[in-house]
């Protein structure tokens, strides 16, 4: 399916220079000279590397047709994450280099959506937020009233995020898995 580059949106998959890429960022850009452009950041789904590429906004781009399937996250090893489709019992693996930092926030046993193209897994669809338990954080220091002050907290998946001072060990918090930002107490 073809579309004009001006319509590209974050999260979509495209064919570009013979490979499949996922759009990480797409910004329309009118430079005040010449024609309008679409500035994108593309992630190569083979190597996980990002590149910045500028399309002409009216340039035809081939979209990759994908389906998203709910799967259970089984485990990860040094280089891959493993998922299982609970209906078909098929297992799929995704390189950590492709999933990126989001992989630090995934909990074994939980369900996530995985994008498939003809049975080939491309990437996960990051949930808007994940709920994770704090296993380690310092007590708040009294008298510290600087607006917006934060402290580090280690979550059950092992990743460390910055949280407000009032959050305690054992609390379950919501985190945006794409940015690692604390979004509230669950």
């Amino acid at each position: 399916m073809k579309t004009n580059a001006g319509n590209l949106k974050k999260g979509e998959f495209v064919y570009h220079q013979g490979e499949i890429w996922q759009i990480q960022k797409a910004e329309f850009y009118s430079p005040g000279k010449g024609s309008a452009l679409m500035k994108t950041r593309l992630k190569n789904l083979h190597s996980g590397k990002n590149i910045d590429y500028t399309f002409k906004s009216n340039e035809p781009v081939e979209l990759v047709e994908v389906e998203s399937v709910e799967m259970q996250f089984l485990y990860k090893d040094e280089s891959n994450l493993y998922f299982m489709d609970e209906k078909s019992y098929n297992q799929y693996s995704l390189p950590i280099s492709v999933v990126g930092d989001t992989s630090f926030y995934l909990k074994e046993g939980d369900k996530y959506y995985v994008y498939l193209q003809n049975e080939k897994p491309l990437n996960i669809k990051p949930p808007l937020s994940v709920k994770l338990k704090i296993i380690e954080t310092e007590e708040a220091i009294k008298g510290d009233t600087v607006t917006g002050a934060k402290k580090p907290a280690k979550l059950e998946t092992g990743v460390v995020v910055m949280v407000p001072l009032f959050v305690k060990k054992g609390d379950i918090i919501s985190v945006n898995p794409e940015t690692g930002e604390y979004t509230g107490r669950a």
């Binding site: 850009y29 430079p31 010449g34 024609s35 452009l37 500035k39 500028t54 399309f55 002409k56």
Partner: peptide, 17 residues
Amino acid sequence: QVKGFSYEDVWSQIYSQ
């Protein structure tokens, strides 16, 4: 991609990229 595009179109793209 150059087919169907003007000098200005392609120039802008390379300049930006």
